[in-house]
Design a protein around this nucleic acid. Structure first.
Lengths: 138, 138
DNA sequence: CGCAATCAAGTTGTGCGCAACTTATCGGGC
DNA sequence: GCCCGATAAGTTGCGCACAACTTGATTGCG
């Protein structure tokens, strides 16, 4: 089962790769943008992004630097708390949202699963993830 | 669904990490050993290992070097075809098999899923992986 | 036979993912 | 007001993954 999960995860990023490559993005970078698009004009901090994606600053800091260099994102020190860095979208970052609107459907098609199977799989995987993380916090 | 798969895969390696760490292994290294244990006194080539795990030589070459440095594996140029390198187990590598016999059960428990759910999940994930790879070859 | 195309493994470079550590800021107790 | 523990982000180091390339061996076609 465990190898199946590992293999499926890598196979899926194989599907994403050529699609995201059209926009010069990697899969983790795309995930960050998905979070930002959802919370537009909210500008989460690096920690909040990390909580949403379960990634730490060691992964996010360089990734966000690359997104900033690509002109999709801006990082600004919070005025209220100088420790925090807020991550906001640029106009270019917002514009990308529409151009990538069809990505989820293209990927879903490539999996060859039915809508019902996708929903079921989502449920069971989310449950596994949460079970594991709940155990870790104890 | 896609983030769920990505997150679940990483959560599962979080479960493996402390367990494998007791033996000084990483998860991909453990997967290589699983293949070798299954095919004992067969000594697959690097390519055959790659086909089994869907990893290329760029990933496997340095990984196998580390397993060799740990004394678990030996790499030998094939006499019949000097291009090939056969990967065999050392005595120490074989001995590790027994000591790690309980690993799968410990991990399965940590997922919090029932036996039936694990079987079902395995089936659906394997199908996704194969669907994706079949499409790529066309 | 000779040589061009193919193939196996390894190398290089980039980007995660995570542990361990560093730096700078913040907040609470005295 | 000051210090001490906690917190946020960043840095360093290591091990995958994967693309692109290199090196050396092999195969097959003329």
């Amino acid at each position: 089962m465990c190898f199946a999960l590992y293999a499926a995860s890598r196979a899926l990023t194989d599907v994403y790769r050529p699609i995201l490559d059209e926009h010069g993005l990697t899969y983790p970078q795309y995930l960050v943008l998905l979070v930002l698009w959802e919370r537009d004009d909210d500008a989460p901090t690096v920690s909040e992004l990390g909580a949403a994606l379960r990634l730490d600053s060691g992964t996010l800091s360089p990734l966000l630097k690359r997104l900033e260099a690509a002109g999709l994102v801006v990082r600004t020190r919070s005025a209220a708390d100088e420790r925090r860095v807020e991550v906001g979208l640029t106009g270019q970052g917002r514009a990308l949202r529409e151009r990538m609107g069809d990505v989820p459907r293209r990927v879903a098609t490539a999996t060859g699963l039915t809508e019902a199977e996708l929903v079921f799989l989502h449920g069971i995987l989310t449950r596994v993830t949460e079970t594991i993380h709940r155990q870790k916090e104890q």
